[in-house]
Nucleic acid binder design. Structure first.
Lengths: 224, 224
DNA sequence: CAAAGTTTGATTGTCGACAATAAATAAATT
DNA sequence: AATTTATTTATTGTCGACAATCAAACTTTG
């Protein structure tokens, strides 16, 4: 694969490969648990191993790859237990983010969030089966709220690390959940609490929302 | 500076430099906000730029360095607002960790934790002025509890990222706090709750403990 | 035949050099 | 003289090659 040769300002080859690899890993194009061959990948992107390793090390920092000295990089393996760990951490962090969002979000940000929800609702109404878009839209919603919290650390931990892992799990385990309608309703209530600047309620609703998702996952685990 | 030339198994040169640089950054030997010159550092450690960059990219993943394309790495700058952000995130994550610890810690782990607290208490009794050790010991305490939670994600986020940032702040801003005696007492109560397997109380106490530390920081900020 | 040891092959770790970009200095123009 | 433009210098990005380590195939030995 040829990386775009047009010299974009401030965007390095390693940046491009990093983003592309991240997408391929998240979407399951590169399988979980599989080992990455540096010579092979470098040849694929037509770059040197140096710049490839630059991209790989950043993917490790994002939690998508694991590295062992003298052995190499592997895509992180997804255990159900680790997925539940992520949900529990999200419950804690996003509850906090939602409380902060209720205090800090501007009216314009809230309007954008409402608009996002409306678009997702239309999608869901139109094409009933496409839970795919709904699930991706769910993360968009959470993404906006975390951004609205204004807490840079939360933004880094959630938007730049955990959310990619969550998306990875969804692609891996399939994402057709029966929670679409209910999730939409929950999102609506959360926005209302944010608009009312009721941080306490916003936190509770968000925690409950994520907790319900976790239980939904647990239920489906047991049936397997 | 010469890196140890004895070929340790599974430990690469980049590993050694990574650990050493991390310590130098945390302890303020390399100033916050300062730019890192790759040629200079490579010469200092007597290694090539490639292995140095390997170490630097990992430090970026730890949140200690920031990188801009074509410009280079800088040590992260510490604003008081960001420090407070860390405390708020810790309050959330460590509260959760403490609740899990109350459910999961083995009796041996609890004994070790008690022993740790006893040692710290003796240090404090003996040398009154050495708040230095007390503060480092405080993080040891928190470290043990997070490890005892058994949640690998929490361990990664707290023990491998945030705690190094916290230590960095303490070195930077000085760490002589008047909370030594009170903190010891709070630690004692937290252990008791863990031993009683009272997760709910353990979480509340831990959150209160960290919240008090944060307020202590805020108070000292205002006096500056 | 099984298990230990050896050899071969491939992969990662490390290196130094060149190319592309940014920073600093010098020159030129208004 | 101040600002803009050119030129020079230094730093980062990228490359290919060699050394060290690991994995696998083969041989040897009990």
């Amino acid at each position: 694969m040829q990386i775009s040769t047009t010299t974009s300002p401030g965007i390095t080859r390693a940046d491009t490969v990093f983003t592309d690899l991240r997408q391929r890993i998240v979407e399951g194009d590169i399988l979980t648990g599989s080992k990455l061959s540096e010579p092979e990948l470098a040849k694929y992107y037509d770059i040197s191993r140096s710049t490839l390793r630059d991209a790989l090390s950043r993917l490790e920092g994002s939690g998508l790859l694991q590295r062992k000295a003298n052995i190499g990089y592997r895509v992180v393996t997804l255990s159900t237990e680790q997925l539940l760990e992520i949900f529990r951490v999200r419950e804690s962090l996003e509850g906090m983010a939602c409380r902060l969002a209720a205090q800090n979000m501007t009216s314009k940000q809230i309007e954008d969030l409402k608009h996002l929800l409306e678009v997702h609702n239309q999608y869901e109404s139109l094409q009933q089966g496409e839970a795919y878009i709904q699930e991706e839209g769910d993360l968009d919603f959470h993404f906006c709220i975390v951004m609205g919290s204004g807490n840079k650390l939360l933004i880094r931990l959630l938007c730049e690390e955990l959310y990619f892992l969550v998306r990875m799990y969804r692609y891996q385990f399939g994402m057709a959940s029966p929670r679409a309608k209910r999730a939409f309703s929950e999102h609506h209530h959360i926005i209302q609490a944010i608009e009312d600047q009721d941080g306490e309620l916003a936190e509770i609703l968000m925690r409950r929302h994520i907790s319900a998702s976790r239980k939904n996952v647990e239920k489906r685990m047991n049936t397997l």
